[in-house]
């Protein structure tokens, strides 16, 4: 028998599943684990959140993390997009640079932390650099893929209409045609950048930061506050992804509306 389920967009299911999770969490923490260091309960976390808001460092933590995030992601775009274009458009550049990229790419971003400190000291730039290493490859690889998949017909139509230099073809044909790929790469990159944030703030580049505070409260053994920062990191990551998708679909990718992806 077919049950008449409310539409998949209705918030009913989300509210239900989250409520059940919260209740189970509270029971588990209070009745089973009974140790607020190992597992703070939901109410502990709410209370810790309230304390943190009164303490007033949250806005500063948020701002500093955003600085790290945007330094890293910004560098990724500045480096990754042109490099992706270069290897995607010029076969010679691809043959020359591909081996180098393939050697550097598998090195985990966090393995760069010592060099980040040696090169940039304990600065915001060092944190940004680690985030950059994590997020540059998704940007680069997706830009490259986008350029590789440009239908030949668009390039030829462009050439017939007087768009003949490499610079003009890249600007007027290749970049717009590859934009869906670029957007996908940027989205993956922003996710990876956000994930690298906690590690990048771990080694004491700043006195504030959402990631920095996780380690700070961990050292103070205040796991309820650690949990608050974890949830904040999750929420902001979600919001960044949402804003990004919305902005891209409304502006640069407007022409794709109604197309089947």
């Amino acid at each position: 028998m077919k049950v008449n389920l409310p539409g998949s967009r209705s918030p009913g299911y989300a509210i239900l599943s989250i409520s059940v999770l919260l209740v189970l969490w509270q029971i588990l923490a209070d009745e089973v684990v009974r140790n607020h260091f190992i597992l703070p309960s939901f109410t502990d976390v709410i209370f810790a959140f309230y304390v943190l808001i009164s303490a007033g460092t949250l806005p500063m933590d948020f701002a500093v993390s955003m600085i790290h995030f945007f330094i890293g992601l910004g560098l990724s775009l500045i480096v990754g997009v042109p490099a992706g274009i270069l290897i995607g458009w010029f076969p010679v550049a691809n043959r020359l640079l591909d081996p180098i990229i393939e050697i550097i790419r598998p090195i985990p971003p966090l393995a760069w932390i010592p060099f980040a400190i040696v090169w940039f000291g304990l600065t915001d730039l060092a944190a940004g650099f680690v985030i950059f290493i994590g997020s540059v490859f998704p940007v680069l690889v997706n830009t490259y893929e986008g350029f590789r998949n440009i239908p030949r017909i668009f390039v030829e139509a462009g050439r017939m209409l007087g768009c003949t230099t490499n610079a003009a073809l890249i600007r007027f044909i290749a970049i717009p045609a590859a934009l869906p790929h670029l957007a996908a790469g940027f989205r993956v990159a922003s996710g990876v950048a956000w994930m690298c944030l906690v590690a990048a703030e771990m080694f004491g580049v700043s006195r504030f930061g959402l990631g920095q505070k996780i380690w700070w409260y961990y050292n103070l053994h205040q796991m309820d506050k650690v949990m608050v920062y974890m949830l904040i990191l999750g929420f902001i990551g979600l919001i960044i992804d949402y804003i990004f998708r919305y902005a891209m679909n409304r502006t640069l990718l407007k022409w794709r509306q109604g197309e089947v992806n």
Binding site: I153, F154, E156, A157, G158, A177, L179, W255, R256
Partner: peptide, 11 residues
């Protein structure tokens, strides 16, 4: 030139 397949720039 007018091509055999669709060649308009979709963007």
């Amino acid at each position: 030139m007018v091509f055999q397949e669709y060649s308009l720039f979709p963007w």
